[in-house]
């Protein structure tokens, strides 16, 4: 039911988008999200995009991993 991997928006047509998951293209509804652009990464669940992935936050999280490793 749930794609736990982020899907990249390759094209948008109205409130639908084609998203790329590892080279496979799926169509997803954008009804539940706002301000989506081509190139954004989305979480897809049961045919709907449910959230946009925030790149800055992802980078922050990656930095935190390194900090845990340093602390020990």
């Amino acid at each position: 039911m749930c794609l736990s991997v982020p899907a990249k928006v390759v094209s948008i047509c109205g409130d639908k988008a084609d998203v790329d998951v590892g080279g496979v293209i799926y169509n997803a509804s954008l009804y539940l999200v706002e301000d989506i652009k081509i190139g954004d990464f989305l979480l897809i669940h049961s045919g709907y995009a449910i959230q946009k992935i925030d790149k800055k936050e992802a980078e922050e999280t990656l930095k935190l991993f390194k900090e845990i490793q340093k602390k020990s």
């Binding site: 991997v5 982020p6 992935i53 992802a58 980078e59 991993f65 490793q69 602390k71």
Partner: peptide
């Protein structure tokens, strides 16, 4: 950033497990 491999870095996984 593709949000997959970065979060599966094997070396880091083992190091963080050790920290834990």
């Amino acid at each position: 950033m593709e949000y997959i491999d970065e979060f599966r870095d094997k070396k880091l996984v083992l190091q963080i497990a050790e920290s834990i």
